[in-house]
Design a protein around this nucleic acid. Structure first.
Lengths: 218, 218
DNA sequence: GTCAATCACTTTGTATACAAGATATTAGTT
DNA sequence: AACTAATATCTTGTATACAAAGTGATTGAC
């Protein structure tokens, strides 16, 4: 864990929060983390300030920094917003997308298909992200693209598990094809609905997963 | 300008960037600002880190902090996203809104009307924001509400000017009534379209304003 | 024995000091 | 006179030191 500079520390901490090194509500001890990173408290505090604006930690004055993992309710809300954001991207992309970009999208989906045939869910996940990112980009609105990428990144750790559901990759592929078809025909409403449903399914899967966990815990 | 604590400094700087105290590309001198605020460089730097994640300044390593005002293109993109976000809020609110909330919305619109009759564009602006914020809240999705409020805040300085166009307040009011009607009937598509158009008009006004400025400058 | 108050210790917030990189200026050479 | 190189100055980045607020433990009183 030899890392220098305040901005890199923020990224490292972000990663550690995402991969579950810290649980929800954990206090981030400044001196402890500072010596772990081999820096003083000053750059570490600057990193914490950044994480607070990203919503990953809560900064309570005179008390410290606490990691703030989204709860089930907030996650559902975020999935709902993600679905709507992607629907907007699709609607805009349906009108603005070039033929070259459509070809690129089909290529991305082909790579998804290969990953699915190899039953490689990690690879599928990576290619799937590129498929979606292509649609964000082709919305022709960089601000929308950036916002979508931000939320995609934020939801990544929670989305990832879902591909391990049996048959999910195959279903996802089918939905991709419907999306490509709608974008090809330039039908913006169909594209928006297809993408919204595609993402919403993941949110619902997540909901049932959470319900299962909750039932198991009681 | 007697202000203490890092988080307050961030808010003050944000305000100063919004109200045009700093122009696009201006370098924010740490020592200069520190003594203006009557603090040391440490809390001021922490404030700058926060502003960077909000996208208001760019932090170039070993060079300093530079204010980053969105250009005409980026502003149009932001208006487009705002329109779509509000459309989503409206679609969800149309299904989820309670009768009490609808009543509250009508009240908010009544206050807008009073402000319009008094030709008080500042008051109209404030009441208009509350009208919109009510719809965000009634989307029943706090995450969406927060994101919408963030973008609303970001676009505030640019939106504000538009109400000074002759007849804009009256037109805005008419559009509000269409929105309230759609929400009352629970027609989510109509509500989404009404709100999208309502916001898009502002973006287009802004575009023509920018075009005018550009033409005048050449 | 339990509750409360005071004191010690821990931790955050801020200032200052120091190191390293970037910019500007000046001097020297062509 | 113009361009380059070297140096001086300024600015950022980081460490350390100090002050203030908070937490916990111990002691005393009821």
């Amino acid at each position: 864990m030899e890392q220098r500079s305040a901005v890199n520390i923020a990224n490292s901490l972000e990663h550690m929060i995402f991969d579950g090194t810290f649980a929800d509500g954990d206090r981030l001890d400044e001196v402890r983390l500072a010596e772990q990173f081999g820096v003083s408290r000053t750059p570490l505090r600057e990193a914490l300030q950044r994480l607070e604006s990203s919503g990953l930690v809560t900064l309570i004055p005179r008390r410290g920094a606490f990691v703030r993992q989204p709860g089930p309710l907030e996650l559902l809300e975020m999935f709902e917003v993600m679905a709507e954001l992607e629907a907007v991207c699709a609607r805009l992309a349906a009108r603005r997308m070039s033929n070259e970009a459509l070809e690129e999208l089909r290529h991305a989906n082909t790579r998804c298909q290969m990953a699915a045939e190899a039953q490689d869910s990690d690879l599928y996940y990576a290619e799937n992200e590129r498929f979606h990112a292509t649609i964000y980009r082709e919305s022709g609105n960089s601000f929308l693209e950036q916002e979508s990428l931000k939320l995609q990144k934020r939801l990544r750790p929670f989305r990832r598990q879902q591909l391990r559901f049996r048959g999910r990759m195959a279903q996802s592929l089918t939905e991709h094809e419907a999306i490509v078809a709608a974008l090809t025909s330039g039908d913006s409403n169909a594209a928006a609905n297809a993408l919204r449903d595609h993402v919403t399914v993941q949110g619902e899967r997540f909901q049932s997963l959470m319900a299962g966990l909750k039932a198991a815990a009681s």
